[in-house]
Nucleic acid binder design. Structure first.
Lengths: 236, 236
DNA sequence: CGGATTGTTGAGGATACTCAAGTTAGGTGG
DNA sequence: CCACCTAACTTGAGTATCCTCAACAATCCG
């Protein structure tokens, strides 16, 4: 809700790379910044897509609910990520719900600006396309995992992906630096929280991870990688 | 390998919509057309990505092989589709293999033209982005299906998707108009050819489909849709 | 006609789900 | 600050789905 947003907030983001100050100002002049408390949603599935966003701080979880009421996590949104770009998906509504799992701040643009911005700023268009390319690749990776791997390996890969995207080095390992529940992990891997609980318990006994209520610390990422790649037998 | 490619071949494609004749000619002047016999590959997984393509006629299957040797089908390429755009995925190699399942013709551009073309033709950039958006949505749909649905429903959805993309109305139903094996369907749904065989046999007894060696005719798409959406019990 | 590819079907078993009961941790209000 | 309440998690038992293994049948192609 600021009058003007400072260039320095975004100038380092890959999305805005190779843009002049003037271009940045042009784009930022159309944006407002918004704060989202933990547990609040930025937008909800099915809602008219009237804005798109860039996350500045915090962490969001994007979910979809099936007609039967099962939920799956499409992805986590990390600082610097573009999200809510329904227009690029050729949609008028948001296909999922995005909810803050940590205190978050995002820039918001009216969706009506989308075409205009792309037209006026070709380098941003290319960056946005690369963003989508990266996401497409991640989706294919997950498809491959879901199609071919057993649960334990899928959980290993999922947990390693989380660590790569939102891990923070810490004494004794890499911590996922936002609250993750077993249910969350289940919804990312296509399994149940029961199975995730059993797997993490086994891993904990083996010294691979350290769990806790919505906490996760990877104590031995290397061994997890071996497990995920099937070079080492599972622990169940 | 033609000297020049005629505008009429591509002017109707969504990818090239809203482009002037001059723009089209500029783009086409950099392309060559190529023919691919059934069973030949356009490019292979891991190979240096030196070209990107648009399919004019025919049908391609894009697969990935896991380190363990299991294969999955990432998608089918239909006429008009852009494919092999490794650059947009920020890659220097092709992440999968694309192989002709029907006699095919594609236009090919040197990958070095990619940035240049995007720069010179903003409307094509936007169209390409929409292509990627559509693909991202399809990937998310498949993720949701793999995560939450049992095999029979996944097969129903997969088969209906095939019909929508490459179905041809025919006396008695909708025919998938290229050869599809049970193995193919298995690789699209994350199951085995055995399970697919059992499911299709059951469906055939119920008058839902008509199978055959690499053939598939949907006799009752509506009932298949109900089955896929869980509004009707499965037949296994 | 023969070989190869594709598909069928059965039996048995493993993975992971469901159902169920309980425990622990954390937050909240008195 | 403690008691309570709820959300998150644990663990066990039973079972369903679907995979694996195996043998065979049908179809296509040269």
């Amino acid at each position: 809700m600021n009058a003007t947003i400072d260039r320095s907030l975004v100038s380092a983001l890959p999305l805005f790379s190779r843009m002049s100050d003037a271009e940045l100002d042009d784009i930022l002049s159309m944006a407002v910044s918004r704060r989202y408390a933990v547990g609040t949603s930025v937008f909800e599935q099915g809602q008219a897509a009237d804005q798109f966003f860039v996350l500045l701080y915090g962490r969001l979880r994007v979910t979809q609910v099936t007609p039967e009421g099962q939920q799956i996590i499409i992805r986590m949104v990390n600082p610097g990520d573009l999200f809510g770009i329904a227009k690029a998906l050729q949609r008028n509504d948001y296909p999922g719900t995005s909810m803050a799992v940590a205190e978050s701040v995002a820039l918001a643009w009216p969706m009506t600006c989308w075409d205009e911005i792309l037209e006026r700023h070709p380098s941003l268009t290319i960056n946005a396309m690369q963003t989508m390319g990266g996401r497409l690749q991640e989706a294919h990776t997950r498809l491959r995992e879901l199609s071919t791997e057993e649960v334990e390996r899928r959980v290993a890969h999922t947990v390693l992906r989380l660590a790569n995207q939102s891990g923070k080095k810490e004494a004794g390992g890499v911590r996922i630096d936002f609250p993750v529940s077993k249910q969350d992990i289940a919804e990312m891997t296509g399994t149940t929280l029961h199975t995730v609980s059993r797997i993490l318990t086994a891993w904990e006994s083996a010294g691979l991870v350290e769990g806790g209520r919505r906490k996760l610390l990877l104590k031995d990422p290397h061994r997890l990688l071996l497990l995920g790649d099937g070079h080492v037998p599972g622990l169940l």
